[in-house]
Write a protein that binds this DNA or RNA. Structure first.
Lengths: 176, 176
DNA sequence: GTCTATACGTTGATAGAC
DNA sequence: GTCTATCAACGTATAGAC
């Protein structure tokens, strides 16, 4: 009997996402995920070819949204830096839990293509904010702006309380 | 014969530090460290009671310097925010390699007291920059300033090229 | 005091039976 | 689709040679 479960694949992802968010990717074993679902590790491996694929599926929606945002602005004639910072910040805030998980296990997720992609983002956001081939000084300002916002996203507390102030600070960091 | 080695303990730390910096804490096995030194895993365990102790010894000097800086400013009558940001930035830059390693394996290092201590830093730097019990908006600005600087420290390239600009950006983020 | 040999439990992953 | 059994590699631990 196929067990009283709607969609095992989906349930695995849900349980894994919760555990990953709470205790990190590396510190969560597949045995733990399987046990919570009442199945064995081997059954997990039927649905997902590896632990990496499991996390990939969880992070992918976030990656896709950022990718869409970047592609959109890169296609635009000119970019409003403030608006771009705001939009990027909002995407990160929306995927706050996933974002924190990624930051906590950078070296573990580095083996996935995920990390290569995220380092790519860095270059592209800098180019959008201060233009391609900008001076190291201008790039440093863009780094403070983006890095500062990201750091804000990993702090606790309701978003409304700090969103506008953080954005203001990032714009100020970027300079004229 | 005690082997043709000056100080095994020191050599272990040196090799481990290099491997940790290059491929992260979790992705470096003790077997790998031992093999590179021509000894066995068990010999490692004679010198260091655990893998955690090994990394602790590597990170400790960095932790101590930040702790000293914080204690110094907390004892001062008033704090020059710009000067504090500069001093903190310089410590992080000096321990750049260690700092990057820590950031890459946050969840792995969380079990050490290290992470509790670093979260503590966050509160204390905010208090130094915008005063204790500041509004969420002010704290957000301090977060962008500190977080932005930290992000700059993990980028490649010679320090002199971006140090001043990054500092300028952080001061601007902090606001009046 | 310094190290080797050996083993324990857990991890991610695979093979094959039902 | 799920199981049992098994794998190598990992961090950890202890006993004992020198």
């Amino acid at each position: 009997m196929p067990r009283t479960r709607v969609d095992t694949r989906t349930e695995i992802r849900a349980v894994a996402a919760e555990l990953f968010a709470r205790q990190g990717f590396e510190k969560t074993s597949l045995r733990e995920v399987a046990e919570r679902l009442g199945i064995t590790k081997a059954a997990l491996y039927y649905h997902f070819p590896s632990k990496a694929d499991l996390v990939r599926g969880i992070v992918q929606p976030f990656v896709d949204e950022v990718e869409d945002l970047l592609a959109d602005r890169e296609a635009a004639a000119d970019v409003d830096a403030r608006q771009f910072l705001a939009d990027y910040f909002d995407v990160v805030l929306r995927y706050r839990q996933v974002f924190e998980m990624v930051l906590r296990d950078v070296s573990a997720l580095a083996q996935l293509d995920l990390m290569r992609q995220m380092l790519d983002w860095r270059e592209r956001t800098y180019a959008l904010l201060v233009g391609p081939g900008a001076s190291p000084a201008r790039i440093a300002r863009a780094t403070v702006a983006i890095g500062g916002l990201q750091d804000c996203a990993t702090t606790d507390g309701p978003v409304e309380e700090f969103r506008d102030a953080a954005l203001e600070a990032a714009v100020a960091a970027l300079g004229s």
